[in-house]
Design a protein around this nucleic acid. Structure first.
Length: 801
RNA sequence: GCGGACGUGGCGGAAUGGCAGACGCGCCAGACUUAGAAUCUGGUAUCUUCCGAUGUGCUGGUUCAAGUCCAGUCGUCCGCACCA
């Protein structure tokens, strides 16, 4: 078969037949299957992209053949740094490079024969889309989910912009690997922390990989503890209180000092005159450290005494106050109690600065960090840690010093980026009115084309006078637009809600329609998005529900991660390593069907692995084998014989497993079963005339994997309509009932022999038959049968002694 | 340190607690062919005195029965990490 001809032919025909189109009128049978859209990078699609798209298309086609009204759209996440950095390097404007990249990627996707309905395409950098990203931002603003604050943020020195916590990997920028420093900047934030509890509990309601759910749980980091107020003991500041958070309130009597994070606002207030110099120096030196340096210094605890003391709420002891960078300002209250006897870090710190170490939990050697029995703790002595925590929290509450408190590791999502190629923030800054949100009618705030990208001291947009200067919508005075753009993850946090109503010009979407179309039934994409896109999208869904735009709680009912395809060297594919595999040459040589099917067959889909093209020929060979078989069947002359029951069994066994395996993304085993069927059919090549119906089924079974090839064979078999309008074969269970079956005979759990039995035999009859076997008989001489175990249609085990 | 995986032939990979290695690659042999390619058929875990024995990282345990369950251990990978 000439794959080039037939692939082109069927791709065109599918367009004409509107085969890939979603039927808007039949929502009751809708099935929304979505592959994460990708960034239109300058390079071609590599084999990893093909691996993401092709097998999930096989899944979608299978669903379609099962009778679902499949909605499978595709789009491009086209804002982002790479295009801007590329523009700085080459002078080619992001808008232009993105457009040509999209065209190229579309061609490649079409060449794969994926069943996308291109009527629903999304390009996030198109004003028709980002107009609504801005509108949603304003919705969030009105709902109080957006705020601006001066805060130390993660700043990538190479990308020259702030980035979110989720985008910092090992202290470096997730995109470019450069050093990330803390920088104080005025930034916009989304209040994702408002949803911490629901983002956590909602995980129990969705069909996602356990690993991903665990990662989100971890990232949200709920911890149940206690907040404790320590009053400060200096005459001038009697009414100041330091609030600390601890999960170990049971160790409260072991406190020997209090630590504030160096950035804590109380530090300057409580530092005594004689300590100002040291404190200032320490604050300066820690502020300069990058996250990476901080982590390297982990073992070596540093800090300084600020000169003042606070009072223990129960014992009234005087407790010295320190600042130390091992206390993080961004977690809890930015202050902790130091209990050296029962915390490794506090122990190190106390040793270094010669602080009191008081044991209050009976257990092992210090530092003893497990739960135990309280000692040296007044009325709490003898209690277990768990009970003590409850009692102490209660007493603290009664005395007005604090009480139980839940803390989350999750922090608000910083969304301002000091870059050009992103969605403009629909806010105006007026000296008189402050930050003023734009009106919906003024959207979209369009990104100007003529911007000097080399200006990098501030956001590039801040240098564009026509864009930046504007009248204040409130007072009409001179004002400036926000010069930053939104994190691209904002754009991708709601695209799945836009797809079904992508041409809506008035609204982001029609809520009624979206409530019917969502949640996404099957979402497919890389595991690397676990704590970024997948978390943000859940937050957006919940926030938009509370605003009243949608009525469901979770965006993605069921999630599958495909594995990662590595380079042939076993390393992650990257330009710098030069191990990127381009799928085009395989499509050219073998065709899209062969490549698609090889990707389905050669890997366990959720595992992935190093690319290796040695087996790709085998798939080409297999399809040739199928073609020959089909052609032989077509030209066979009738004899009146009927299909053997053995083959009927194989056919239905294949049908049953192919359906099950595709549903589970176990494409490799589904193909293995179809190969078995073909092998079995070849055994009957002297009775080809009996194979006609089986051949129809075979071609249908194979269609989701090799769509063009199967369309062609389907036509050769005399059909006038597309095979994708056919129903995928359904197993006839009655054909799987055999009269006879071979089972294993075990004696004392060892396999001795195999016998044929009737499937309707009772255990006694099976036992009698087993005993007749020569080898078994020999073993039974002079022995007693103590027990017989029969596993239906599998084995019989005789226990003798 | 915390969390999550994973470990099976020469290779990719299969196995609801029930005959380990499906399917394929590679390799070997046979058929067809002047020959090769292609194709078709068969074989292919290891050891073996050909009776069998041993085999799913390692050590134990549960069970009539363990790749699968449990405990421990070694190794690899991923995510988070001074989170109080």
């Amino acid at each position: 078969m000439n794959h080039k001809q037939i692939e082109k032919k069927w791709q065109n025909k599918w367009l004409k037949l509107k085969n890939d189109k979603f039927d808007k009128k039949n929502l009751s049978q809708k099935y929304y299957v979505l592959e994460m859209f990708s960034y239109p990078s300058g390079a071609n699609l590599h084999i990893g992209h093909t691996y993401n798209f092709a097998p999930s298309d096989t899944f979608a086609r299978h669903k379609k053949m099962q009778g679902y009204n499949v909605f499978q759209p595709m789009g491009f996440d086209s804002f982002g740094l790479p295009a801007e950095n590329y523009a700085i390097k080459t002078g080619i404007h992001p808008k232009d490079s993105i457009n040509s990249n999209i065209t190229k990627m579309q061609e490649q996707l079409k060449a794969l024969g994926c069943m996308y309905d291109w009527d629903y395409e999304i390009v996030t950098s198109d004003p028709s889309y980002y107009k609504f990203t801005q509108e949603i931002f304003l919705h969030f603003y009105k709902k109080g989910l957006v705020y601006q604050k001066d805060a130390p943020v993660n700043f990538c020195t190479s990308c020259n912009t702030a980035i979110a916590n989720e985008q910092v990997k090992d202290g470096a920028c997730e995109r470019c690997d450069s050093v990330v420093i803390k920088k104080n900047m005025r930034q916009w934030f989304f209040k994702i922390t408002d949803y911490a509890e629901e983002l956590l509990s909602g995980l129990d309601t969705i069909d996602w990989p356990e690993k991903t759910k665990a990662m989100q749980r971890n990232w949200i980091g709920k911890s149940i503890g206690c907040e404790i107020g320590f009053n400060i003991d200096i005459k001038s500041n009697k009414d100041q209180t330091i609030k600390i958070f601890t999960t170990r309130a049971d160790t409260l009597f072991g406190v020997s000092y209090i630590v504030l994070a160096p950035e804590h606002p109380l530090v300057d207030i409580i530092t005594t005159q004689d300590k100002i110099k040291q404190v200032k120096e320490y604050k300066g030196s820690t502020a300069k450290l990058s996250d990476i340096e901080r982590q390297e210094n982990k073992g070596d605890k540093t800090g300084v005494f600020v000169g003042s003391y606070c009072i223990h709420p129960f014992t009234n002891e005087k407790i010295p106050i320190y600042i130390a960078d091992y206390c993080l300002y961004s977690y809890g209250t930015g202050a902790v109690m130091g209990v050296p006897a029962h915390d490794k870090r506090d122990y190190d710190f106390a040793k270094k600065y010669d602080l009191n170490i008081k044991k209050v939990i009976e257990g092992g050697e210090l530092p003893f960090v497990d739960d135990g029995i309280l000692i040296n703790s007044n009325e709490f002595d003898g209690l277990g840690s768990d009970a003590a925590r409850t009692k102490i929290a209660e007493l603290l509450k009664k005395d007005g010093f604090g009480g139980q408190k839940i803390n989350y590791r999750l922090r608000d999502w910083s969304i301002s980026r000091q870059r050009y190629w992103g969605c403009p923030i629909p806010i105006v800054h007026c000296d008189k009115c402050g930050a003023v949100p734009l009106k919906n009618k003024d959207l979209p705030v369009e990104l100007p084309y003529d911007v000097d990208l080399k200006q990098r001291a501030n956001s590039p947009l801040s240098y564009h006078n026509n864009f930046i200067n504007i009248e204040c919508p409130k007072c009409g005075g001179a004002a400036k637009r926000d010069a930053d753009t939104l994190d691209t993850f904002v754009c991708s946090s709601w695209y799945f809600l836009r797809y079904p109503d992508v041409n809506n010009k008035k609204k982001a979407f029609n809520s009624e329609l979206i409530n019917q179309m969502l949640p996404v039934d099957k979402y497919i994409g890389g595991a690397e998005h676990a704590c970024m896109h997948l978390l943000y999208a859940r937050f957006f869904t919940k926030a938009m529900r509370d605003i009243g735009l949608i009525n469901f709680n979770e965006p993605f009912k069921s999630l599958v991660h495909q594995g990662l395809i590595l380079g042939p060297d076993g390393e992650k594919m990257s330009k710098s390593k030069g191990n990127i595999v381009n799928p085009d040459k395989y499509i050219d040589e073998y065709g899209a069907d062969v490549l698609r099917m090889y990707l389905c067959f050669a890997f366990s889909y959720i595992e992935g692995g190093p690319w290796n093209d040695e087996g790709i020929k085998s798939i080409a060979k297999f399809l040739d084998r199928v073609e020959r078989l089909v052609d032989m069947v077509i030209s066979a002359s009738p004899s009146g014989d009927t299909l053997s029951s053995e083959l009927e069994y194989t056919l239905n066994y294949t049908i049953k497993n192919a359906n099950k395996d595709i549903e589970n993304f176990s494409f490799n085993t589904a193909i293995a079963r179809i190969m078995e069927l073909v092998n079995a059919m070849y055994k009957f090549n002297d009775k080809l005339d009996t194979l006609r119906d089986t051949t129809f089924n075979l071609v249908k079974l194979l269609a989701p994997f090799a769509p063009h090839f199967c369309e062609e064979l389907w036509k050769r078999l005399g059909h006038k309509t597309s095979i994708f309008n056919e129903k995928y074969p359904v197993c006839d269970e009655s054909k799987l009932v055999l009269a006879q079956v071979e089972i294993a005979v075990q004696v004392n759990s060892k396999i001795i022999s195999k016998i044929m039995i009737g499937t309707d035999w009772d255990n006694t009859k099976i036992e009698e038959a087993a005993k007749l076997d020569e080898k078994v008989t020999a073993l039974l001489v002079g022995k007693q049968i103590k027990k017989v175990i029969v596993v239906k249609d599998r084995l019989i085990n005789l226990i003798i002694g």
